[in-house]
Design a protein around this nucleic acid. Structure first.
Lengths: 342, 342
DNA sequence: GACAGACCTGTAATCGATTACAAGAATATT
DNA sequence: AATATTCTTGTAATCGATTACAGGTCTGTC
C-alpha cells in the first residue's frame, strides 16, 4: 500500500516547482517547451494521478454534473442521458446518474411525492456537483442560494419552480393520439394515468382538450389508475376486461403502461387492436418490437437531453437561459390502433 | 451570490471551536450536551452545508461508489443497482452510475472491446470514488496500486482479472433452457449471441454442454449474431424466417434479443411458440408482459447487487473476500415455448 | 486529600492542487 | 544602448474540514 504520488513528487522528479507541474497540467501553453516535456516525462515515470478532492477544493468546482432520475430502469431515460453525456463530454465535464426512488420499481410512487430529502441533501451541494439535471418532477429543488448547484428540469418539472425547464409538448402529444383515434372512428376513448405527476396531468389535459374540441369528453369511468409502471398498465387492462361498458380505445401516459395493458388484455383472449386500440407515449426502443407494435408518440429524446445539458452549461457560465423550452413530439402509427370493431 | 457558509462561520455562531463543530458533525457522542445543542442550532441558523471536497481531501476517501454499466437503458441492470444502492446506503455511502459506452444503444459493441480509456481514467482514482462496481466485462481494471479504488465485477467479468467477481450461473442457466426445450420435444435448437462478450460465451457454452449431454449438438448454421440489442434479435428473426432448414427452438442470450426475435417473427405471420419456441435470459420486468409472455431464466438480480456491494464494502474494510461468488438462476416457464409442431 | 482515569475542548498542522504575486529572463521598440 | 514588453518560473497563501496532541475539568477510589 504505497503512498499515492502527489504533484510534489512529480515536481521533484522533473526538477521544477509544483506550480509549473500544475500549469503543465491545466494550461500547457503557459509552460515553455523543455520544462513541459520534462514534466510530461515525470508524469509518466511517476504514474501520477490527480487528486480531485484537492483540485475541487481549490477550484471551487467539480466538473461533475449529476442527473437525478426517478427510475434508472425506465428505458425512456437512456437516450436522454446519452444526449446529456455527449454535450458534457465536449465541455470536459463528467456525468453521473443517481436514482431518486430507492427501491426502484418496487416502491410505489406515492402521487409523485417521495421522500427524496436524503438524496437532495447529497447533491444540492456545490462541493459534490456543479450542476444537476432533474428528470424527476417530484423533486423540489432549493433554488437560489450561491452554494446550491445550478439545476435544470428535463422532461418532468415542478409547477411554480424557478428552475429552468426543457420538456416535450406533452399536452399536444396526447392530443395527437386522440385526434388519430377519433379520425379512425373511436368515440369513446379512455386514459391510463391518474396520479399527481405533472407529465400525467399534462397528457391527460391534452386528451381532454382534444376530446372537447371534437365534441367528446373523457368520462371519469374511463380513467384508469396508472403510475408509469408495467404493472399498473396490466391492472388497467384487467379493469377494462372486467367491465362491459367500456371504451374502444385507450391512451396511455407512457409506453410501459401501454405494454402492460396490452399484455393483460391479450392474455385473456381479447385482441389488440381489433377489440381495443391502445396508444403509448415516449416511443421507447422496445415499442416497435412488441406485438402488436405500439402506436405511440415519439419524443426527440437525444435532442432533449442535449438541450438540457446545453442549458445547464449556459447557466454555469452565467449566461441567460430560457425558462421554458418545449420540443415537439410526433405520432408514430404502428399496429396497436385500428378502427373500432363496430 | 453570497459566500458559502463554512465550518468557521458555524463555530463563530455557536461560540465554539471548529474542532467542536466538526466533532458534533461526525461523532456527536464525543461532544457534551450543551455545546452539541449550540452547534446544532448554529448549523440550522447559518444553513451550513458541508464541503465534500475539503472533507474528502482530509479524510482521504469519498464515501462514493461508482457503478460502471455498459448501457444504462438495459432494464436488466436496474434491480441490480437497487440491490447495490440498498447496501451502500446502509453503510452511509452514495452510489452513482456512469455509462461505459457513450452512444448507448446506437454504438455497436465491438466484440466487447470498447475504448473506455477516458471513462476508466475518470474513475480509477481514489479521489473520485472509494470503490467501483464493474458491470461491464469489457473494462480492464488496473488492479493493484494503492491509489486505485477497490473494484468488484458484477454479472460480467474479465477472464484473467484479479478483481473479485459476483455472478450468476450462466452456463448452467442456459443449459436449463436447453433441457426444458429438449424435454418438450425439440431436437434442433439454435442460439442467438455471437460476440466476444463473456456472458454470451458462457451461455453458449451451457447450450453446447446441455446438447452434448443429450446427444445433440449446436449446429453452426443455427448460431445467430447477437449483441444483446433488440435489433440484433430482430435480425436473427429475419434470418430464421428466410431459411427453410431451421431450428424449431432458439435460446437467446438475453431477454431483449428474444423480444426482438419474437417481434420480427410474429410480424411476418409465423407464430411463437407454435412455429418456433424462444427463450430469453435475465427475466427483465417486461418479460412477463409481452405477448407471448417470455420463458426465460430468472436471475436473482437484487441479491446479486447486494452481494456485489457487500463484497466491495468488505474489500474497502480490508477484509478477505471470495474471488468468485456464483448465484443460481431459475427457469421461468411462460408462453414462448411449446412442443414443436411436428 | 491525593491521584488516576475519563471526558471535553481548543490550537494548529495537515490533506494536495491552484494561483496571485513577484521576480528574473528573453525579446522587442525607439 | 536603454527601456518597455512579454514570457517563464518559483514562492507561498489558500481552499475547508479533520484530527493529533495537549491542557483543563470532573469523577471516583483508596
Amino acid at each position: 500500500m504505497k503512498k499515492p504520488v502527489t504533484i510534489q513528487d512529480v515536481a521533484r522528479a522533473a526538477g521544477v516547482s509544483t506550480a509549473t507541474v500544475s500549469r503543465a497540467l491545466s494550461s500547457p501553453d503557459g509552460v515553455a517547451e523543455p520544462k513541459r516535456r520534462a514534466v510530461e516525462a515525470a508524469l509518466v515515470r511517476t504514474g501520477y494521478q490527480i487528486n480531485h478532492a484537492a483540485r475541487n477544493l481549490r477550484r471551487q468546482r467539480t466538473g461533475v454534473v449529476v442527473a437525478l432520475v426517478p427510475k434508472i430502469s425506465n428505458p425512456f431515460f437512456s437516450r436522454i442521458l446519452d444526449g446529456i453525456d455527449g454535450v458534457l463530454r465536449s465541455e470536459g465535464m463528467t456525468l453521473t446518474v443517481a436514482e431518486t426512488r430507492p427501491g426502484g420499481a418496487s416502491a410505489p410512487t406515492r402521487g409523485g411525492e417521495v421522500n427524496a430529502a436524503p438524496l437532495i441533501a447529497a447533491f444540492n451541494n456545490k462541493s459534490r456537483a456543479d450542476g444537476v439535471i432533474l428528470l424527476d418532477g417530484g423533486l423540489d429543488w432549493p433554488s437560489g442560494g450561491g452554494d446550491v448547484p445550478a439545476a435544470v428540469y428535463a422532461c418532468e418539472w415542478r409547477r411554480g419552480s424557478s428552475v429552468p425547464m426543457v420538456r416535450a409538448e406533452n399536452a399536444r402529444g396526447a392530443a395527437k393520439a386522440v385526434d388519430h383515434l377519433w379520425d379512425i372512428g373511436h368515440r369513446r376513448i379512455g386514459f391510463v394515468g391518474d396520479s399527481r405527476n405533472v407529465l400525467i396531468e399534462e397528457r391527460r389535459r391534452g386528451v381532454e382538450i382534444a376530446l372537447a374540441r371534437r365534441g367528446g369528453r373523457l368520462d371519469p369511468k374511463d380513467l384508469y389508475q396508472g403510475d408509469f409502471s408495467l404493472d399498473s398498465g396490466a391492472r388497467a387492462g384487467a379493469r377494462w376486461l372486467q367491465s362491459t361498458d367500456r371504451p374502444t380505445a385507450i391512451v396511455c401516459a407512457n409506453d410501459e403502461m401501454a405494454i402492460g395493458l396490452i399484455g393483460a388484455v391479450a392474455r385473456s383472449g381479447a385482441q389488440v387492436p381489433k377489440d381495443l386500440s391502445v396508444t403509448g407515449f415516449d416511443d421507447i426502443d422496445i415499442a416497435r418490437h412488441v406485438t402488436p407494435a405500439l402506436t405511440t408518440l415519439h419524443q426527440p429524446r437525444t435532442a432533449l437531453g442535449r438541450l438540457a445539458a446545453r442549458t445547464l452549461v449556459d447557466l454555469l457560465a452565467g449566461r441567460e437561459v430560457d425558462a421554458d423550452q418545449v420540443l415537439d413530439v410526433d405520432l408514430v402509427q404502428r399496429d396497436s390502433t385500428a378502427p373500432p370493431r363496430d
